[in-house]
Design a protein around this nucleic acid. Structure first.
Lengths: 348, 348
DNA sequence: ACTAATAATGCGAACGTTCGCACGAACGTT
DNA sequence: AACGTTCGTGCGAACGTTCGCATTATTAGT
């Protein structure tokens, strides 16, 4: 924690003014190749690195991106957090940026305060948002302040900002079509409440696939609730006790936790998952492949999302010209495992 | 992205010099209660917040803590990452600090370069390390440079630095004693390779508990390998095919993934987990409670660890007097579920 | 009323950069 | 030979704070 090498020392050692050293380092000026090499030599000898804070003060940029996310409850881990963060760190580092992470506050007032603080103190140059909701106060604040940000997920259509979202409808279409291809006709859904935009998006894919197959889903096949194990279990029990003609033979879950609950319910009533009742999830939670049977699920291109989000944000932050907001939609992929297959052959 | 309020504007509005405003805000000086209230009024009216960068440049502190961690493979998520990060964010925020997160590089050279960069550019005031290894290059670098840091986990005993670790030995003692209390006598272990300090720590608890019960574990009960599902499965199969007299009736896993693999192996040979063969894990991976049967596991006090790590680090960073390095050991707790109980009653 | 002490405030400098402009030297052009 | 150009480099200022000391206003002590 000792020495600090400054521009002046480099200048002294290479016999030019310190401002010239600065310009050479930033490639803003032509100098004799001789002086240039002297300067670089000195930089190297002294192991000089520009003081980030000073550079930042002068150039009015912090080279820092703020990110905060809603923590998952302890019994329901966020399966993509690690990869999502790492992908952003890597992409940011390539452009000389770092991520500043700050705590998530449930109180909207307090939460907004966090964002304001970071903006007003000029601590970050932009934000990445995730888990945006309809009329998200953060989005409203940042749009109003014209502060750069991008979001993982969409909000109200009339709010214009750059975002990337996973095409959940496409994901559910894949899952539903896969089940239809296995011969299923009565396919039920474990869904989220109606207020959930993400949930509604995903369900569209289910309806699209069903109707394309000429099937009009029965209203009782749609169960809405909190996306947790307990609800998945309960809903599946109810679905399995429907009368013979309407009892589903397959269940699509909007997340893995509900699907796992459903698997347990199927097994508890003495039916076999896969061969008799098919189940699919969403998110491809790591341990899902180690269940008995392994869970068919839908995987999001997390790494790519993180990278592109950062690239989009830095274009806004760095870019000379204002960027048109764009909403990118990415395609998830279906990972087929035993929980949705007639043959009990364990894949994976 | 518009206005920026500076000290000077506040000063103008309250009729004092901007330096005085600074001092009042930082409570470094006495002023008339009248001027004081005028100043605070102006601060409030203009919504003034000190520019972080300028403050940082002048005071030579970044109020930022660096943290980087090794990402988990996609099929083996880190169960405590989310809570660990959030706990640190909260603790840091209380003291006006934020966390700067940066990518993890596998190449040691490149990794060290990341730390050097952040130190030399004065971008962070200290680091939190996790996953430290014997002769960890990061530890050696930071000690040599006398740069403030704390670690989650221990390293060589002769390297003196502040750290918090979970008493894995205690955890395994709890698990083993629990199994002994259920009447088990032949208890095998799914362990990590001998080079693993964490693994060796944990195993000590197993041996302690066994010997305290007057049992000398057979060498063949100890299986070492990579801490993954596949190894757990394989090792359990081998253990279950030992001759009658030495075949274990219980398995302790050093993590949940091995335990889950073991559960599958037990079921595949037609035995019942819990009533016939008991299995325990380590980490209390969220989905472990939803397995069939739910997995008994060991839970680390993650939130407390994160908070205390930050407190320790800030004492070093903020403290006027140098702090004595201390190695704190925290006690994990046993979460008993059906996988280790004779009665098939599902707890959880 | 005069000085000494104390309280309240102001002032200049510094932190380490980047930025814009100015300046001299070398160059080619008329 | 005098001129405009370009090239290489230097200089002063600024970014918005904090810090130490100087200065003035106030109070108390004789």
């Amino acid at each position: 924690m000792s020495r600090r090498v400054t521009l002046k020392e480099v200048a002294l050692r290479s016999g030019v003014s310190y401002q010239t050293v600065s310009k050479v380092i930033n490639g803003q000026v032509q100098v004799t190749s001789e002086t240039e090499s002297r300067i670089w030599q000195a930089v190297h000898d002294l192991n000089y690195r520009p003081n980030y804070t000073a550079r930042s003060l002068r150039s009015q940029r912090s080279f820092t991106i703020g990110y905060s996310w809603r923590p998952s409850p302890p019994d329901q881990a966020n399966p993509i957090l690690d990869a999502f963060l790492q992908s952003m760190f890597h992409a940011a580092e390539l452009s000389g940026y770092y991520l500043l992470c700050f705590p998530f506050h449930n109180d909207p007032q307090r939460q907004i305060e966090s964002y304001r603080e970071l903006m007003d103190t000029r601590r970050v140059d932009g934000f990445v948002l995730s888990g945006v909701e309809y009329n998200d106060p953060r989005v409203l604040l940042l749009l109003e302040q014209r502060f750069p940000f991008v979001a993982f997920g969409r909000s109200n259509p009339e709010l214009r900002f750059s975002s990337i979202d996973v095409d959940g409808g496409y994901g559910l279409r894949l899952a539903t079509e896969h089940l239809l291809a296995q011969g299923h006709r009565r396919i039920a859904a474990l869904a989220w409440p109606e207020e959930s935009r993400v949930g509604n998006n995903r369900m569209e894919g289910y309806y699209a696939a069903m109707r394309a197959a000429g099937i009009e889903p029965l209203p009782e096949w749609m169960r809405r609730g909190e996306g947790r194990y307990a609800f998945g279990y309960q809903a599946a029990r109810e679905l399995l006790s429907l009368p013979d003609g309407s009892r589903p033979t397959a269940l699509v879950g909007l997340n893995d936790y509900m699907a796992v609950g459903a698997i347990k319910a199927v097994q508890d009533v003495g039916l076999e998952v896969g061969s008799q009742i098919a189940v699919t999830g969403f998110d491809d939670t790591p341990i899902a492949q180690y269940l008995t049977p392994p869970l068919t699920s839908i995987r999001q291109p997390v790494w790519e999302i993180g990278e592109r989000l950062i690239q989009m944000l830095l274009e806004i932050v760095d870019g000379a010209t204002p960027i048109e907001a764009e909403a990118v939609l990415m395609q998830p992929s279906l990972v087929i495992r035993a929980s949705s297959q007639m043959t009990t052959k364990t894949s994976s």
